Amino acid sequence: MAFPKVPCSWLSLDAMDISGELHLDLDHDVYKQRLAANGSPVKEVEKHNVDATKTKMPAGNGTAGVAAGVAGDAANDTQVAVSGCGSCYGAEDQQGDCCNTCDEVRAAYRRKGWALANVDHVEQCAHDMYTESIKEQAGEGCHMWGMLEVNKVAGNFHFAPGRSYQQGSMHVHDIAPFGEAVMDFRHTVHRLSFGKPFPGMKNPLDTAKAEHTAATTSGMFQYFLKVVPTAYTDLSNVTVNTNQFSVTENFREAQGGAGKTLPGVFFFYDLSPIKVRIIEHASSFLSFLTSVCAIVGGVFTVSGIVDACVYTGARLIKKKMELGKFS
């Protein structure tokens, strides 16, 4: 998947399902490449700005191999720690609390429900790699690909701006560091699949460019996927267990206010209770010969009928002409 207007460092990939399993800022078997404003890959300046980490997810009932992804910068975890007890800048839960890193300051603000939009005055964030990468990559795009495992239950995975966290029962993305920047989430899905492909398989979102006719491109792109388990058996009796899916698209324009729409690209999937079986088979030579004979016989029969009609019509016309009754 390619985002031509959203930098890699601005995005996070999260996955969750109705069983309660939640994964934030996924970087498991997911990769990214920074893109310049003209769409060309940005040359590698620092390794953490281009390459994503590759780690294995915990084993589970995985069904989805998703050829789209995004990872947070591995080096974003680099923090500047202050000596002694650092200030939380008014967000202490109780007197004496310390915030010695930039992430601890952000966490304290999140617990209070406050936005930390400007970190220039925060000593712990003086050399925060996350803040620096946000400024450095402004105006760039991002190309993401990879795979992730999901449980065989309904759920969703989404690409959205800012680091994500769970606050009570709410899933929240911290977009305060981006200020008033417009999030243009127009994108191109190069390939999306759930499982291995089989001969002749075509997924509806492959090489599909998501565009919308709304006046603004800032908003939530939603894809509602109905995943159908499929078993394909070829001529050599080898079976491939995979999935097909259908898709319905929707776009929610970003709105202001407390309940404003989070911009991003969201894929909501649900599994169908019906399984499709596709079995490939070849006809025998005897069946082929029988079909050929049937076709040839049919051609001769139709030709005979047409010939008889023409012959009978010609005789009637000739007889009338002899009697002088044809005019």
Results as ranks from 00 to 15, higher is better:
Ala2Phe: 10
Pro4Leu: 10
Pro7Lys: 07
Cys8Phe: 05
Ala15Trp: 08
Leu22Arg: 05
Leu24Ala: 00
Val30Pro: 01
Ala37Ser: 15
Asn38His: 02
Pro41Cys: 07
Val45Gln: 08
Glu46Val: 15
Glu46Leu: 15
Asp51Gln: 15
Asp51Pro: 00
Ala52Asn: 11
Asn61Glu: 12
Asn61Asp: 11
Gly62Lys: 04
Gly62Val: 03
Ala64His: 04
Ala68Tyr: 01
Ala68Phe: 11
Gly69Tyr: 04
Val70Gln: 12
Ala71Gly: 15
Asp73Ile: 02
Asn76Pro: 00
Thr78Gly: 08
Gly86Asp: 05
Tyr89Gly: 05
Ala91Gln: 12
Gln94Pro: 01
Gly96Leu: 07
Cys99Tyr: 07
Asn100Ala: 05
Cys102Asn: 00
Val105Trp: 09
Ala107Val: 02
Tyr109His: 14
Tyr109Phe: 15
Arg110Tyr: 10
Arg111Pro: 05
Gly113Trp: 01
Gly113Lys: 02
Leu116Cys: 09
Leu116Val: 12
Asp120Leu: 07
His121Cys: 09
Cys125Met: 07
Glu132Pro: 01
Ile134His: 13
Cys142Asn: 06
Met144Glu: 02
Gly146Leu: 01
Met147Pro: 00
Met147Glu: 14
Val150Phe: 00
Asn151Arg: 14
Gly155Thr: 06
Asn156Leu: 09
Pro161Phe: 00
Tyr165Met: 11
Gln166Thr: 08
Gln166Ala: 11
Gly168Asp: 00
Gly168His: 08
Met170Val: 05
Ile175His: 06
Phe178Cys: 11
Val182Asp: 09
Arg186Met: 08
Thr188Ala: 03
Thr188Tyr: 01
Val189Arg: 06
His190Ala: 10
Arg191Ile: 07
Arg191Asn: 14
Gly195Trp: 04
Pro197Val: 08
Met201Ser: 13
Asn203Ile: 05
Asp206Thr: 12
Ala208Arg: 14
Ala208Leu: 13
Ala208Thr: 12
Glu211Ser: 09
His212Pro: 05
Ala215Asp: 15
Thr217Pro: 01
Thr217Gly: 08
Met220Trp: 13
Phe221Arg: 14
Tyr223Ser: 14
Ala231Tyr: 00
Leu235Asp: 00
Leu235Ile: 11
Ser236Ile: 02
Ser236Glu: 07
Val238Ala: 15
Thr239Cys: 01
Val240Met: 01
Asn243Ser: 11
Asn243Val: 04
Gln244Ser: 12
Val247Phe: 03
Glu249Arg: 13
Phe251Glu: 04
Ala254Phe: 09
Gln255Gly: 12
Lys260Met: 04
Thr261Gly: 03
Leu262Ser: 03
Pro263Asn: 13
Val265Leu: 13
Val265Thr: 12
Val265Glu: 03
Phe266Thr: 04
Tyr269Trp: 12
Leu271Thr: 08
Ser272Gly: 03
Ser272Ile: 05
Ile274Pro: 00
Ile279Thr: 07
Ala282Ile: 07
Thr290Tyr: 12
Ser291Glu: 08
Val292Asn: 00
Gly297Gln: 01
Gly298Gln: 03
Val299Leu: 13
Phe300Leu: 15
Phe300Tyr: 13
Thr301Gly: 14
Gly304Gln: 03
Gly304Leu: 07
Ile305Lys: 06
Ile305Thr: 07
Thr312Ala: 13
Ala314Glu: 08
Leu316Thr: 10
Leu316Ala: 13
Lys325Gly: 06
